[in-house]
Design a protein around this nucleic acid. Structure first.
Lengths: 216, 216
DNA sequence: TCTCATTTTTAGATTTGCCTAAATTATTTT
DNA sequence: AAAATAATTTAGGCAAATCTAAAAATGAGA
């Protein structure tokens, strides 16, 4: 297997960037990974070459990298662990949603399938983590049946329930908290408009009631 | 601070061996640490020299190594984390006592004081872990008021409550479990005598009742 | 006390993961 | 289409943590 924290971090970065760039087939530049990981580009190149040898990554020189099926499975398992631990930290240990990212970043590398599965059971098999992100199951499958919308989709009179924050960033989450924004709380269009737009645009809501015709 | 998994492992080994060799002032040979850690002696020597630079270890060439006050504090914090995580795994996630050592070995390196303290609260500030070992508090202090005795102290008619197993070893713990030995269960002298002595001698009991005069 | 077996350290090499600087390939501009 | 610019990889080096083999110190027995 030959996993390591660094290798896993590169796999996770590749997964995250690949998703944001249009899915599993997208090529992710090594520079882009380097920025995301806080290392220099040549380090990523060499790591990506190692990960290719190990069968987790496909690398096309000067084009970029993307995950193999095995790599994607590994990435989804890391995402699963990260989000389950974040859920544990918030729901059981009483941490604020802005405090848990760095700790979960460490916990996600703990290697024990049984631990993850028991944690999942213990938490009641949650489908969504404290930031509103879906938690994949042991097979890497998501079951997120929410329909999420940006607040910009709301019109006067609409009410939305805060359902996700798009970036897991302590500063942003603290700010949101200080404005009273918490997962599951209900907000009118007007109240949301009163938030600074840098904050508002990071939110996603589920519609509670809308004035719009034919809205889901 | 400059902690790392390997450095912490060496500190913990030095603590454990130092305790078993007669307390904080005992010199522990690098060979002995090497055996305990599963590495070769020269690796320990060089690590010990690094740890001395960092102020956690005192090294007398050809004599051995021992922890400084700062090193001991670090070691006790690792022991605390290890034993709290083991408690969590057994009491909350339902693991068997023979399954948790390796996972706790990973979890003990997670770096977050707040996490440890919250976990401690969450578990109800336990004083004893699933193997009967005392859990130091945040200041490194133990509060273990049990009086533990080897089964060899028991005489016919005595009853003892299983209170600790002296080695955290999966094979041993599984065997004990298969003989029905579990923490807190009560055993007569006779029942204990029926166990293989390799198992029995790893146990410590609290006396429930004794025939002996003047026994505590 | 001197020699010799044992223990421990030093020396030098290896692997992993990172870096900077230089070379290479791709892309954009004119 | 050629040249300039930007992105990426290669080359070569460094630090951490390990190893093996060789040298040095300890201490036990004669």
């Amino acid at each position: 297997m030959a996993k390591s924290k660094q290798r896993e971090d590169h796999i996770k970065a590749l997964y995250a960037l690949g998703e944001s760039l249009g899915g599993p087939k997208a090529w992710v530049s090594t520079n882009c990974m380097a920025d995301h990981l806080g290392v220099k580009a040549p380090s990523v190149t060499s790591m990506v070459q190692v990960l290719q040898e190990l069968g987790w990554v496909e690398h096309r020189p000067y084009r970029g990298a993307r995950l193999t099926v095995a790599g994607r499975r590994l990435a989804l398992n890391l995402v699963r662990k990260h989000r389950l631990w974040e859920t544990f930290l918030v729901e059981r240990l009483g941490f604020g949603w802005e405090e848990v990212h760095d700790i979960a970043e460490q916990l996600e590398h703990i290697d024990s399938i049984k631990l993850v599965d028991r944690l999942d059971d213990y938490l009641g098999r949650p489908k969504i983590d404290p930031h509103g992100d879906p938690i994949p199951d042991g097979k890497g499958l998501f079951s997120d049946d929410r329909s999420l919308r940006p607040p910009s989709d709301m019109v006067a009179g609409d009410v939305g329930r805060i359902a996700a924050v798009q970036r897991d960033d302590a500063a942003l989450l603290s700010l949101l908290k200080s404005h009273g924004v918490a997962m599951g709380t209900e907000w009118t269009h007007e109240a949301l408009q009163a938030l600074p737009h840098e904050l508002r645009e990071q939110l996603l809501v589920e519609m509670v009631s809308t004035m719009k015709q034919g809205a889901s």
